[in-house]
Design a protein around this nucleic acid. Sequence first.
DNA 1: GTGAAAGCGCTAACAG
DNA 2: CTGTTAGCGCTTTCAC
Lengths: 333, 333
Amino acid sequence: MPSRKVVIGDVAAAAGVSPTTVSHALSGRRAVSDETRRRVLQVVDELGYRSSIIAQSLRNQQTNSVAFLVVDISNPYYPTVAQSVHDGLADEGYVSLIGITYGEPATEEAMLQNIVRRNVDGVIFQPMSLSPQDVRRIVGTLPLVLITDHEGELHADQVQTNDAQGIAEAVRHLGDRGFTDVGFIGGPDGRSPGTVRLASFRAAAHALGLTVADDWIEHVPFTRDGGREAGLRLLALPSRPRAIVCANDVIAVGLFDAAHMLGLDIPDDVAVVGFDDIEVASMLKPRLTTVCNPARDVGAACVEAVLSRIDSGPDAPYTVSSLPTVLVPREST
Amino acid sequence: MPSRKVVIGDVAAAAGVSPTTVSHALSGRRAVSDETRRRVLQVVDELGYRSSIIAQSLRNQQTNSVAFLVVDISNPYYPTVAQSVHDGLADEGYVSLIGITYGEPATEEAMLQNIVRRNVDGVIFQPMSLSPQDVRRIVGTLPLVLITDHEGELHADQVQTNDAQGIAEAVRHLGDRGFTDVGFIGGPDGRSPGTVRLASFRAAAHALGLTVADDWIEHVPFTRDGGREAGLRLLALPSRPRAIVCANDVIAVGLFDAAHMLGLDIPDDVAVVGFDDIEVASMLKPRLTTVCNPARDVGAACVEAVLSRIDSGPDAPYTVSSLPTVLVPREST
DNA sequence: GTGAAAGCGCTAACAG
DNA sequence: CTGTTAGCGCTTTCAC
């Protein structure tokens, strides 16, 4: 049982060289004679020496870690993004610090402060309550990638999806299939990304001359429960929409629940369109027509953005990468 | 635009005190006069000073971080565990380092080495390829919680679920409903947790005198594709089982796909039981009868185990917490 | 109640 | 090709 943790000095002593030489034998940043390297490596192995990344971080001012702060991972969309981020970072030798904010302003701020104090090399953050300015103020010049559809002056590199495009396609698809009365179940009022999706929906419906009664628009949390409750209200209306677009797939699942409870058939009594194309979409019966939100690509874009920002430094102009969304027609319409 | 990162010395200089006093004014570990504290706090605020957790970690030999290493998060079971772990750790002021190993021995080893070098305060690890001894050898005396049903000598605190219990209940349930011919779609051969679940299935079926033909047992990956392929083979058999137990819900989804492709009705042509009770289970049509695997409780148990190990030190006896699983009967049987 | 000095473990000048 | 020295930013003795 080795008593104390073995440090670089122990290796140096045992190999009869200086700590500097041990360091260089391991990092290769300075030439070391073959004989010396061999001896050092052997001692390292015998003693089971593992260099302290903490000490290296303090010295080098970089931690090889990136924080990934996300609103929620109970929605299956996010684990996919997280996985893609994790894998992309791991490939480049970075470790992922993950934080779930639940969209709480206090939590968002506290987690950002904490990860700044941890000297992470970069941050990938999906803001819900904090504005881009707020976030930038907190993280200073740290490489920062925001997952948001925020418009206006840029305060960070941004990754977003072109939701309007997919929604427009979905509405057109409904029109093509002869649905003229359409409703929408959106996220919490005034919050991204629900707002953009609702606005796109209204615009597309208007352009096609479809009917959207005022009480055919619902605002609920992005949850199955939310979808069910909104669905029960919408489907009980004396004059109800014949097709409903949901701001995400999880809401659509709730709407399926509601239709089932009311004995209504999908798509004969009411057609349903989702958003995200999470795995579940193709498990439902009927399979859910939905707009594919490319989770893996979003993750990859975030990684690319944060890594190139780490490379380029804080002065390069901010970039925004906007990923396409596309309709996946299935049997719920 | 503040040029350089502000450090404790800057605060000390501006407040006209020593770094020692600043440190104590902030940590409260030593008495500081009210007047001094007030001045220090004000300067901290003006300068936007944030102490470096990296430097503190090096000095204090603790990082307030815990690593969570898991096989895969594309199976929806794991995000739930991860969330529970994250929340539990965050409550106690710990940050989560998450790693996805994909069950690769090399990745498992590399990630463990890396997080040891990062001086995490504890590790929660779901081993797939490495044995508990191997893991213990790698992490030394670090607090370690293993998510595994491994039997035999303990090398770490362990969290496991009583899968046998739930499976037995499921088989009994099938017997009660009059199914006498039963099959099983399990995970990869010889790997946990598939092995335990299969063994429990065999034992329970045998005890009840149910028929289990040799070719009614399939070994596939824990994926939807795996379930579909096994399902297609099983359901095409000249003499096929009337009920099939799946080693997890994702496999069951694949089996649903297969039944659908073959025009077979669930449960009239074939009954299906899953394992885990992930959210999707109740979204399928018919809703899936399954064994509830308490993901949140597993996460909470891991957090509790790792925290109390951090408290108690390496010499306290290892604990194992075994969580119950229970059948959730729905319409697929 | 406060400060000076040492040191956590490592790497990069600088010097030979 | 190798070693000595200093210092990353912090906390904690030890001393007053």
